[in-house]
Design a protein around this nucleic acid. Structure first.
Lengths: 232, 232
DNA sequence: AGGGGATCGAACCACTTGGTTCGAAAAAAG
DNA sequence: CTTTTTTCGAACCAAGTGGTTCGATCCCCT
């Protein structure tokens, strides 16, 4: 252990503090390890390294090089390789499910809404960035169970709840006939990416799906879903 | 532990050689690096280590310890850590899809056949062993693309071909009405494990699914499939 | 202009890595 | 038995690991 005693976990507390202390533009000299831009710079470099090497094969020297930040500075912002990784994974998880579920709003036609949602979902989930981050998380799931579990809980699971609520609304409205809405929720999400997701995850295709491929899966999936659960 | 090996997988070269040299029981002194039992012993130890640590975090010393074989001997049987890993992955892939597709035979009723297949598939794919090996393969997919691609091609993709042929047979027989059988193949496989696979892969649940959970997904999936594609 | 502190960068630390070497032990062959 | 050869086990290697230290910069603030 050692000298440098800068408040370790920082960030949120510091930001909150700043915001509380001064409502106007806060531009004073930043304490060590408190510059959000530098923090971001480190995270972006770490992202590039982790998402191509995985956690274990990535070295802090690689990250140093890729981020263009000295090693000492990195260790002022983050206490350890693992902590840096954990924060990055939170970013992965949040990025994964941003701006998908808004597709439900604005489309009053059920089929259109499902298709819009399906496209947004499957485009994002099969994108290079997201596939790489999923690989990294899955790769360490065995040894870091709590983190990958929280990744799933805070990410996919929350998304499922939104979909489920949407389906239940339409069941109540009489558009859909579903007994097991939870199961139907998973079925819908899986159908949206049938034939796309696993191929990408296992690296069978290193190119993102084309628009045709997305359409084929999504429209095919939605139509199947509606044929099975649509009111007849 | 160890020994008692039906040497079901791998070591093809050694077997072929033996078989070619003598038709009768071959029991002479084995050349260095040629004992199938020892080879298997190494592979089993390596399996335990790789599938809990992943490729990069696993060390050859760990494997030495776990397999109960000296390091020198390991390097007589395998040229490098990576080669050992590659051979192990071939074992993973072969184990994954053994004995699943036989479920199609014997059930003349379409629904029963689909359910039998679905149960076999989803039980195997969500089992501890197979989940772990999938995590390992996915974890290195970014850096060893050719190997994970071949894993997918020789494994899941071949399985899909069998399912597709089965579906096409029933389309021809008039039991099913499917336009895009390839898509339907993926849909069927994904539906069999809806709500089970990803949870397991991300470590959200560390227990294998119960029989009820399997039934719920499989029967729900098959019924949905038949409602969408069954002849009306 | 000058002082203070965040950042740099390179050396450094103890330790582990994949891989090799080599004499001793073990076991099968003759 | 002796010989032969695989295996053991431990030492060994160079390279790289995560992490620390420290003087030299550089930049912001007064």
């Amino acid at each position: 252990m050692s000298s440098t005693k800068t408040c370790s976990t920082s960030l949120s507390t510091a930001n909150v503090l700043e915001a509380a202390l001064s409502g106007d533009e806060r531009q004073g000299r930043l304490a060590a390890g408190q510059d959000p831009a530098k923090r971001q710079q480190i995270l972006e470099g770490a992202d590039r390294v982790f998402s191509t090497m995985g956690f274990d094969a990535a070295s802090m020297n690689d990250i140093t090089r890729e981020a263009g930040v000295s090693k000492g500075t990195i260790y002022v912002y983050f206490d350890s390789k693992e902590e840096l990784f954990l924060e990055l994974c939170i970013g992965y998880r949040d990025k994964l499910f941003s701006g998908i579920y808004s597709a439900f709003e604005g489309n009053h036609n059920l089929r259109d809404a499902l298709i819009a949602f399906g496209k947004a979902l499957s485009i994002k989930v099969t994108s290079d960035m997201v596939i790489r981050s999923q690989r990294v998380v899955i790769g360490v799931a065995q040894r870091m169970p709590s983190m990958s579990r929280s990744f799933y809980e805070q990410g996919p699971k929350k998304g499922q709840a939104i979909v489920k609520a949407f389906l239940e609304k339409h069941v109540a409205a009489g558009d859909l006939e579903i007994e097991d809405t939870e199961l139907a929720t998973h079925q819908l999400s899986d159908l949206m990416m049938s034939g796309l997701f696993k191929r990408r995850l296992f690296g069978f295709t290193d190119k993102e799906p084309t628009e045709e491929e997305i359409n084929r899966a999504v429209i095919g999936g939605v139509d199947m879903f509606l044929r099975a659960y649509g009111k007849r």
